[in-house]
Computed example of a mutant assay.
Amino acid sequence: MIANTLPPCIVTEKVEESREFYVKHFGAKVTFDCGWYVNMQIGKETSELQFMAPRAPGPPTCNPAGLMYNFSVDDVDAEHVRLTAAGLSPIMPLEDHPWGDRGFAILDPNGVILSIFSPREPAEEFKQYVRD
């Protein structure tokens, strides 16, 4: 199988808050919204997120503990300035990581960790793990 897209869908009581958060802070384009279910594109056409209110029968509300979305951006320093100026507080500071990125993290309304980073050259000890 070759998937065309692989959008994660969070079942949450916070569909409206999630939609507003991603539209406001990440420029998400809402491509479908029936109130209890929303699909959004963020950046490139294949970058999508979905949020759905619990419905019976259906999956239970998601426990996002340990769930992380990784956002690769061109200029992580500019994104850090922009998002903190908008009032978002990083839960992980902006810093260089030896595995090959510079990044920070914030939380979305559901408690999903949003790791925002720009790629960097990995430190020598991590170069052996890079695959082409």
Score class of each variant (00 low, 15 high):
25 H>S: 11
8 P>Y: 01
88 L>G: 06
94 L>Y: 07
120 R>M: 09
51 F>P: 01
86 A>C: 07
119 P>D: 14
71 F>N: 00
78 A>E: 15
109 P>F: 03
109 P>W: 00
58 G>L: 06
78 A>F: 04
101 D>A: 03
105 A>M: 07
73 V>W: 02
87 G>T: 05
10 I>M: 12
49 L>E: 02
88 L>R: 07
42 I>M: 11
114 L>V: 11
29 K>E: 15
53 A>Q: 08
17 E>Q: 13
103 G>F: 00
59 P>R: 13
45 E>W: 09
46 T>F: 10
21 F>W: 06
76 V>F: 05
106 I>V: 14
130 V>W: 12
36 W>Q: 05
27 G>R: 05
1 M>A: 14
49 L>R: 00
40 M>D: 09
47 S>E: 09
103 G>Q: 00
84 T>D: 08
89 S>T: 14
73 V>L: 03
52 M>D: 03
4 N>Q: 14
54 P>M: 08
58 G>F: 07
100 G>M: 02
24 K>S: 09
16 E>C: 02
96 D>I: 11
37 Y>A: 07
28 A>F: 07
26 F>P: 03
113 I>H: 04
95 E>P: 13
29 K>N: 08
33 D>L: 06
33 D>K: 06
32 F>Q: 12
74 D>M: 08
27 G>E: 02
17 E>T: 01
14 K>A: 12
119 P>I: 07
130 V>Y: 08
128 Q>Y: 02
39 N>E: 15
64 P>W: 04
51 F>L: 07
36 W>A: 05
99 W>D: 10
60 P>A: 13
74 D>E: 15
32 F>N: 11
9 C>R: 04
42 I>A: 10
